[in-house]
Structures are given as C-alpha cells and as structure tokens.
Write a protein that binds this DNA or RNA. Structure first.
Lengths: 250, 250
DNA sequence: CTAGATAGTGGCATTGTGCCACTATCTAGC
DNA sequence: GCTAGATAGTGGCACAATGCCACTATCTAG
C-alpha cells in the first residue's frame, strides 16, 4: 500500500536536506543632490568584510511569510521607509558568487523619496550605517560579492522601464513641479528629454494631479503636482526614443 | 587582532546553516495542433504525488555551475531540446507553497519548436513521462504545489512580451510562412492580428530571411522563411495595440 | 476556364512622440 | 514703474509606425 502524503510529511526531516544559502539583496535608489544614488552598507562581517554592499540578508523564516517581506524588512531597517516601490529584478545563483559555497540571491530594487528616508528611529544605532552613494561612483567601486553586477542589472532594469513607464514618479517627494519631474527622468536616463513631449505624455496619462499650489521662487511660479492613482502596470502607449548614441544598426 | 577572511572560511561549516529548499521550475511552451500547450509531468513522489506539475527540481551543486543550467538540464531531460529559448520569470518564496516548509522556486519559461521536442533518446525510459497539455486546459486543472500560479505568471509574461517583441519566433519550426507565423502570434495572444500590419512589422524588423523555397499546397504558394539573426533584446519600436476587450478606462 | 482560396500589396487614416519657436509670468535691480 | 533675465508653459506641424481595408496575384480542383 502506497504511503500517504501525511505519512510522508510526518517522517520528513528537513535538516536532512541542505538547501542553498538564499539571500535577498536590494538596490535602493533615490535622488540625492540631483544625482541618482544608491544606498550601500559597509559589511561588518566576513566574507567581504569592510566592502560596500547592497543591503540584504538571509530570509528569516520566523519573520518572513513571503520573500518580498524579507526585502521590505531589510529596507525598513536601513531607511525607515515603510512602503517604497519594490520590484523583483532577477535571481542569481551559482557556485562562485559567495566563497562559502553555492548560493542564491533574489535581487530587488526599490525607489524611495530620499528626503523622507533615513528617518527610521533605530537608524543611528546601526553598526553598518547605510550611506547614499552616487551610482556613477558606486559602479566603479568594487562592491562585495557580485554586488557590482547586481547593481548594474538593477540600474539597467530601472532605465529600461523608465522609457515606457512612469517609474521615476516613485522617486518624487509629495509635491513637485513638472520641470522637477522631468529632471528626475533625465537623471535616471542620463540623457536630456524634450520639454513639450515630456509634459504632454505625463499630463495626458493622468498619473499626477495638480495640488492647486504653486512653487514660487525667483522666476515664474510653477504648478505643483502630486502623484495620483498609480497603477504598477501602467505603461505609456509608446516608449521614448532610444538615443542612438553609440548604437550600431548597420 | 581581527580574523582574516581565509580563517573565517576555514572554520565555516556550511552544514550548520540550513538554507531554504530551492527549486527551479520551468513552463515549457510549444504549439501543438494549433494550440498553445505546456509540457507537464505527473509527480511520482510526495508531496503532491500524482498531480500534474511543471517540470523542475532541485539545484544539483555537482552538476550545475549556474542556476540557468539547472533549468537547461531539466529541460533537456524532459524534451531532448538542447538550446531552447529560456527566460527567467520570477522567484517565489514563502512558507506555504510546499508542505515541507519554507521554500523558494526560481521560475523559468521556455519556448520550443514542438516538432523537434520529445526526441530525446532517454525520454521513453522516464517514469514521469511528460505530456503536452493545452494551456487553456492546464489553467483550469489544479496543478501540484503553486504551479497553477507559476503557469499563469509565465503565460502573462509570454503574452506581454509578444506585444512588443518577436518572442513567438522561438516556437517556429526551421521553415515557415508569414501566415503561419502570424497564426502563432495569434495563438499566443489569443486574439486576431491584422495581416498587413503584422507582415510589415516583421519584415521591416529584418528578423527573418527568405529561404527561397515556397510552401505549396492547394492554393497560391507562400514564401518560406527561416529565423535570421535573433537578438534576445530585440523590441519593436511600438507595441501592438491592446485590445480593449473588458478593459475599463473610465 | 472558372471558382475558390490563400498570398501578398497599395495607400490613406490614426495616433503619439519629436521638434522648436513662441508666449506668459515671475523677481531683481535700477 | 520698467526692463532684463530666467524659468513656465503652449501652438502647431513633422515624422514614424501601426490600423484598416480594399485590391491584386497566383495557385489547385474540377
């Protein structure tokens, strides 16, 4: 008589089966002083002790019901941000990325409004105090493990989606002008955009709402907007033109 | 004096750290008798014994250098296809998806030319003989674990990419007509496409090459094409129109 | 030779972005 | 008050790729 599933599970001893080391790492992006920046921590322990790394860590089965929760938990601990935009990028697993052996990491990226991050009450107590590093700089710094690759992949994803979605909205503070929003898109893409096209596109999409207030300063006041109803799966009907810089196409 | 990384690794005992059960599952799509179908296996062991499942399994650290290799290995064993199109979809991890405990699965999908699959020499010997199941049917069948969800996610990804890329080309046999190719796109999207627009789009993209041969039959002969140089990151300049069927947009 | 069927094309409409000049409205400084 | 300078915001046409649909082309069957 074949064994039932219940009987199978009763005699199943999990410790008999060694799984891979599985971590969650997150590239947290924000705009700091007009630069696209990423939050990095300095590793306090071996391996890669002392090197800068993307914040991350092991799944805690007691705390995390779901893998995205691991990312949220780590992110809250580092930044104090409770509900950022969080997106899974990809999973890398191989024999060489961690000297301790075959390991798997699930990579996420997060977009936060930098101005409200780092506000977590427990933040100052942390040993591996996170710092914002401009991505240009982070990309040429050798990071811990394969985190340089993870960062590059996250950035690629962010840039690609910025061409056809409104993702960078998640980097904005509660109120902003269209010019400021355009600047953020330009910072992310690292390329200038055309004003009229940009404004038309954003406004016709109905993603943002006028607050009624104006931002005043030395020049003509600008209308302030806030984010309206944002669907994660919103896409523009057409992507922004590829800039053909350095792209061969026979 | 602080410990060196070498010393740390020397005393590091991997078995002291239990990782999550990490599996790789693949939704293998092909066109069978004019229907989009997925290759499923019947589970031979607990848990979910007897249920249909996506082919997959544990990473074998001795065989797999890299996680994609696990997917390739499993796929080869089931179909005999050595170099299919294989794409990572996402990673799901939670406490409930496997009754044995917290588990993680890395989901891939593959596209194969059905006509050359199932040709593997070792295929007939396998106990969990794979079968092609039309996706419509597979979607309403309760699959093992959370594989119904995995299948749905894979299908969503395939359909979305079909709107702006030429992915379904990977489902085609070595030679095919434009009409046949259009049919495959229509089967994937489950919606009719306009002939002229489709042909113009495909031909101007330069993705396929005329073989010089014609497919003859009862009617006017049709030019036969083969796949040319296919870049995985090719995208059309604009996506196909969303069909607004059932889509509310205020 | 014709009907029927599928292959393949011509050509205009539609839509959203690119482009760029132009107008609008503020402050600072005289 | 007036003007220069700067940034905000718009008008309007060009352009490119897809949507649409009618039309032509070429085969087989009988």
């Amino acid at each position: 008589m074949p064994e039932s599933e219940a009987a199978f599970l009763a005699r199943y001893r999990r410790a008999d089966f060694l799984g891979q080391l599985t971590t969650v790492d997150t590239a947290i992006f924000g705009i700091v002083d007009g630069e696209l920046s990423v939050l990095l921590v300095q590793r306090q322990d071996h391996p890669s002790k002392g090197k800068l790394a993307l914040p991350g860590g092991f799944i805690d089965e007691a705390l995390d019901d779901e893998i995205t929760q691991t990312a949220h938990r780590k992110l809250l601990a580092k930044t104090g941000v409770t509900s950022p935009y969080l997106e899974q990028v990809e999973t890398l697993g191989n024999a060489t990325r961690d000297p301790r052996g075959w390991s798997v990491t699930v990579l996420f990226f997060a977009l936060v409004d930098h101005s409200v991050s780092l506000a977590g009450p427990t933040f100052e107590e942390q040993a591996d105090k996170p710092r914002w590093v401009p991505v240009i700089e982070a990309l040429r710094t050798p990071l811990a493990f394969d985190h340089s690759l993870l960062l590059a992949r996250s950035l690629t994803r962010l840039r690609k989606k910025t061409r056809y979605s409104a993702l960078p909205l998640r980097l904005m503070p509660p109120a902003f002008t269209l010019t400021e929003l355009q600047h953020v898109f330009e910072i992310v893409l690292d390329e200038p955009l055309e004003k009229k096209s940009f404004r038309r596109r954003i406004e016709e999409a109905g993603l943002i709402v006028e607050t009624g207030n104006m931002k005043t300063g030395k020049h003509r006041p600008a209308a302030l907007f806030r984010i309206g109803e944002l669907r994660d799966d919103f896409v523009f009907p057409r992507p922004l033109d590829e800039s053909r810089v350095g792209v061969a196409h026979t």
